[in-house]
């Protein structure tokens, strides 16, 4: 398998280089998408299926669509734009890379974190260590991550990103959307439920759900009224709200912020994750479609 790993690493480097150096936005986005695929494969080879799943759901599928949308909004690349920044950027990047290499080389081999998590896994209420860390031991971090998503949503809303008017894709897209949307809902539910015992979780489930919703939107099957957009915005904000209510509720019940009541941890975790899934899906969809129904002039 050493040949496999070498070819994979070479492919990742090649993708990264072409994503950065192509003077064509579509080429860069496509190279970035393939980079996501290969990085997911490399996580699989590093025996980290949780990270591979997150990379697959967020890195490869939806960021491609979001970047294509941003590229369309930005227009074609002006020749030699940003050339003057290339040297400082290269210096900063190589400094960062050198620092990371130094840290990696000087890190003490026995990891302290993994045995600690394994030891306290039974009290977390779930059997998947990744979910236990994200939603119980370090739930505070995840709460702040959701706050970042909400900030992104609000800023995009404030900037008044123009509502997308997609080109009609025609009837051939309808069977596709009708098959993919239900399967993606099923898959999202599966990932969400499975997250407590195996690789899966709210971010992955939300991204898959958003993919299904985008298929419906692009096929023209989704309703597009102002009310729907407003509802989706509320759904997007509700994840943080539910998480905050859970934090305050657990504070009131047990006296510690996000310290769930004994033997009910799994219920709390799954409930929070379910709310997060819907909120992440709505956020990703809104970031793609835009908010205001402004007649494009």
């Amino acid at each position: 398998m050493i040949a496999f790993d070498l070819a994979l690493a070479a492919g990742i480097l090649l993708c990264a280089v072409s994503a950065l150096t192509r003077r064509d936005r579509t080429a860069s986005v496509a190279a970035f998408m393939v980079l996501g695929l290969l990085v997911a494969l490399s996580w699989v080879r590093l025996a980290a299926p949780d990270v591979a799943l997150a990379e697959a759901a967020i890195g490869a599928g939806l960021t491609g669509a979001l970047f294509l949308r941003a590229a369309r909004r930005l227009g074609p690349l002006r020749p030699a734009a940003g050339r003057t920044l290339a040297v400082p950027a290269a210096l900063v990047a190589s400094g960062l890379g050198g620092g990371l290499a130094w840290v990696f080389a000087s890190a003490s081999p026995p990891a302290i974190y993994a045995p600690l998590v394994a030891a306290s896994l039974p009290e977390s209420g779930v059997s998947n260590p990744v979910t236990a860390v994200l939603l119980n031991f370090r739930a505070w971090d995840t709460l702040l991550e959701i706050a970042v998503l909400v900030v992104a949503l609000l800023v995009a809303n404030l900037l008044g990103s123009r509502r997308l008017v997609p080109v009609s894709l025609g009837e051939m897209t309808l069977p596709f959307a009708r098959i993919v949307a239900p399967i993606s809902i099923l898959l999202a539910g599966h990932l969400l439920w499975q997250g407590s015992s195996a690789p899966g979780g709210a971010f992955q489930a939300g991204a898959v759900l958003a993919g299904g919703l985008l298929a419906l939107v692009l096929a023209g099957l989704a309703p597009t009224g102002t009310l729907v957009v407003r509802g989706a915005l509320i759904a997007g904000l509700s994840g943080l709200a539910v998480f905050l209510i859970a934090a305050l509720g657990s504070e009131a019940l047990t006296g510690s912020l996000l310290g769930y009541p004994n033997r009910a941890e799994k219920v709390w975790i799954v409930a929070i994750e379910a709310a997060l899934t819907l909120s992440i899906a709505a956020t990703l969809c809104l970031l793609f479609t835009g908010f205001e129904k402004r007649k494009t002039s």
Partner: peptide, 13 residues
Amino acid sequence: LLTAISGATVGHL
């Protein structure tokens, strides 16, 4: 199923 229908749809479009 998903890959086949994705490829066919994207190819057509």
